[in-house]
Amino acid sequence: MDKQVINHPDMPAPYGAYSTAIRAGDFIFVSGQAGIIPKSGAKAGEDFESQARQAFENLKTCLECSGSSMNDVVKVITWLGDAEERAALNDLFGEYFPIDPPARSTPIVDLPMGLLLSIEATAIARD
């Protein structure tokens, strides 16, 4: 199975020694996407809603640039910075994955830079 690093100018740049997205066979693996605005590198806001919505949009962009989509996601890990935001996360999850949502794990962790959410995903590659 070949491994291909996916790069696209619309995708958020990685903040370290990792790739934003990798295609391996028929799957796309997207590294954790946080609530950071790709063009500026700034947080989308201090509140959970702003950051989480941006994280989901970043994930969506990465998938689309990789030949996949939110409908093709099979597994998500949502790294949550505050357990009290679980209900708000569930609401957004239902919005972004309205039909046949993917499997999900949600560990509660201390995220860097005051971030409140990071989303990593595995999806089926379509092209």
Results as ranks from 00 to 15, higher is better:
residue 27 F to D: 02
residue 27 F to E: 06
residue 28 I to R: 11
residue 29 F to V: 12
residue 29 F to W: 10
residue 29 F to G: 02
residue 30 V to C: 13
residue 31 S to Q: 06
residue 31 S to P: 00
residue 31 S to I: 07
residue 31 S to A: 15
residue 32 G to M: 07
residue 32 G to I: 07
residue 32 G to K: 04
residue 32 G to F: 04
residue 32 G to N: 10
residue 32 G to C: 14
residue 33 Q to F: 02
residue 33 Q to P: 05
residue 34 A to K: 05
residue 34 A to T: 14
residue 37 I to L: 03
residue 38 P to F: 13
residue 38 P to Q: 08
residue 38 P to R: 07
residue 39 K to P: 00
residue 40 S to C: 09
residue 40 S to G: 11
residue 41 G to T: 12
residue 41 G to H: 04
residue 41 G to I: 08
residue 42 A to S: 11
residue 42 A to E: 14
residue 42 A to F: 13
residue 43 K to F: 06
residue 43 K to N: 09
residue 44 A to E: 10
residue 44 A to K: 04
residue 44 A to D: 05
residue 44 A to L: 10
residue 45 G to L: 05
residue 45 G to N: 10
residue 45 G to S: 03
residue 45 G to W: 00
residue 46 E to W: 12
residue 46 E to M: 07
residue 46 E to D: 15
residue 47 D to G: 00
residue 47 D to C: 00
residue 47 D to A: 03
residue 48 F to K: 02
residue 49 E to P: 01
residue 49 E to C: 02
residue 49 E to G: 02
residue 50 S to A: 14
residue 50 S to C: 07
residue 50 S to N: 08
residue 50 S to H: 01
residue 50 S to V: 02
residue 51 Q to E: 03
residue 52 A to C: 15
residue 52 A to N: 01
residue 52 A to T: 02
residue 52 A to L: 04
residue 53 R to T: 10
residue 53 R to H: 03
residue 54 Q to A: 05
residue 54 Q to K: 03
residue 54 Q to W: 02
residue 54 Q to M: 14
residue 54 Q to H: 04
residue 55 A to E: 04
residue 55 A to C: 06
residue 55 A to P: 04
residue 55 A to H: 08
residue 56 F to G: 01
residue 56 F to I: 06
residue 56 F to A: 08
residue 56 F to Q: 08
residue 56 F to T: 03
residue 56 F to R: 05
residue 57 E to L: 14
residue 57 E to I: 12
residue 57 E to Y: 07
residue 58 N to F: 09
residue 59 L to F: 10
residue 59 L to Y: 10
residue 60 K to F: 03
residue 61 T to N: 05
residue 61 T to I: 14
residue 61 T to E: 03
residue 62 C to A: 11
residue 62 C to F: 04
residue 62 C to W: 04
residue 62 C to K: 04
residue 62 C to S: 14
residue 63 L to D: 08
residue 63 L to T: 06
residue 63 L to A: 07
residue 64 E to Q: 15
residue 65 C to E: 13
residue 66 S to R: 04
residue 66 S to L: 12
residue 67 G to C: 11
residue 67 G to S: 13
residue 68 S to P: 09
residue 68 S to A: 12
residue 68 S to V: 11
residue 68 S to M: 11
residue 69 S to P: 01
residue 70 M to P: 00
residue 70 M to E: 09
residue 70 M to I: 09
residue 70 M to R: 09
residue 71 N to G: 14
residue 71 N to Y: 03
residue 72 D to M: 11
residue 72 D to S: 15
residue 73 V to S: 09
residue 74 V to H: 03
residue 74 V to G: 10
residue 74 V to Q: 06
residue 74 V to K: 06
residue 75 K to Y: 15
residue 75 K to M: 14
residue 75 K to A: 12
residue 76 V to D: 00
residue 76 V to M: 07
residue 76 V to L: 15
residue 76 V to I: 15
residue 77 I to A: 09
residue 77 I to M: 09
residue 78 T to H: 01
residue 78 T to Q: 03
residue 78 T to A: 15
residue 79 W to Q: 10
residue 79 W to E: 13
residue 79 W to N: 11
residue 80 L to Q: 05
residue 80 L to Y: 08
residue 81 G to P: 08
residue 81 G to M: 10
residue 82 D to R: 12
residue 82 D to Q: 13
residue 82 D to S: 12
residue 83 A to I: 13
residue 83 A to R: 15
residue 83 A to N: 13
residue 83 A to G: 08
residue 83 A to Y: 06
residue 83 A to P: 11
residue 84 E to V: 09
residue 84 E to W: 05
residue 85 E to V: 00
residue 85 E to C: 14
residue 86 R to F: 06
residue 86 R to G: 06
